[in-house]
Computed example of a mutant assay.
Amino acid sequence: MLVRDFPNKRIKGLLERIKNGLGWRYQQFVEPTIDLYGDIPSFVKYQYQLKTKVLKHKAVYIYANRRNIGDYISHLGVREITGIQGGELYCSKGGHKDLLAYLERCREKGVVALIGGGGLFQPAFELFWNSLLASKVEFALIGVGVNQMAGRPLLPRELLSKVVQRAESIHVRDNFTLEYLQTLNEAEITLGVCPSVNFINRSTHGQKGDSTNTLLHVVHPSDLRMSGVSVERLRENLRQFCKEEGFCYRESDNMGTNVTKAIKDIRSAALVVSSRLHGCIMSYASNTPFVPLYCDKKTEYFVDSHTDKKGYEAVQFQDMKFTRGVLKKELTEISSYSNVQGVLQRKIKENYDFGESLRAKFF
């Protein structure tokens, strides 16, 4: 039996590596310019609301797009804290043509742009920021963040300074972004937790889901590889830990449009190990135990700004002994639900207070 199964296992492993390799390359190099925003229904829905909603309200929401759960759930959080009706515009490169077509019309009609959340202060969005400034549309920044990562520069300082100067209100998601933007301009900037926390907390009524015996690995293949981490080795070590401790291993890349399923998967996990920022944020919002793996700075900024947790460089989890020690320790040191909820509710209220100030200012 073992002899007969061996080729099948080798083929399965080879196909998995090919799939993962093609997947992250498609997301990194193709989707930014040929973008269906997750799937064909999402594309059709977006085009329909362009025609029916964008110019019908006093506000328009601008964010990257729906194909990344983190970007989309942050946008839903922005809607949650502002409570203002409005259409949507995508600021990723794939949506730039539609964005340009509507920005000028938004200015003419006095529509205010509510921008965020997400890590929009990176060169991939430089075209968007230049177009926004040229349009002279009034705008506010909500739940946005700066991300430092090896091999990727930040948005040019001169451009970012102009964005900060022009913004009517700015509410950022971590201390590093707050301090960095304050070095560029003396604008008033407030700090809050990622708006997605508000959306998750309301949609789940602040209740932890029924835990299953599952370790959920929320993985960011491209960023891990860019930071020198072997995704295959990391995955192998986590699977080995699950085998030793009797857990079921599950994996998600947090891409797609099914927010409900993404939240459910997080809430039902016994433990989340995440190299994606919003794998950590969604765990935090639902009081699910999680281990942050750093392959860029944005996750570290979130952890340091809003939690008392310890994070780890993802490369450390290529060592099985280290992996085993950290995960066992995490499972025995879970914070009490009531203590976490107390901190969460304070941060959630701060976000709602910012939303109220926006309504008073613009609407």
Rank of each mutant, 00 (worst) to 15 (best):
R239M: 14
S305D: 05
S274Y: 03
S268K: 14
K243E: 14
S305L: 03
E251F: 01
A269E: 08
Q316R: 15
E300S: 07
T257D: 09
I281M: 04
F317M: 10
R235V: 14
T307N: 05
K243I: 03
E245N: 06
N287C: 12
D253R: 02
S275I: 06
C248Y: 10
A262K: 02
N237A: 12
G311L: 07
H306G: 02
T260M: 05
R250V: 07
K264D: 14
D308L: 02
R235I: 07
L238A: 01
S286T: 14
S275W: 05
S305C: 06
F317Q: 11
Y294T: 08
D296T: 04
C248N: 13
S283W: 05
E245A: 14
V272W: 11
M282C: 03
R267A: 13
V291M: 10
N287P: 00
F302N: 06
D253H: 07
F317R: 08
K261C: 04
G246T: 11
L238W: 05
K298Q: 06
E232R: 10
F317I: 15
N237T: 14
T257M: 06
F247R: 09
S283L: 03
T257N: 15
G279Y: 05
I266K: 01
Q316V: 00
T288E: 11
A270K: 15
G256Q: 06
Y249V: 08
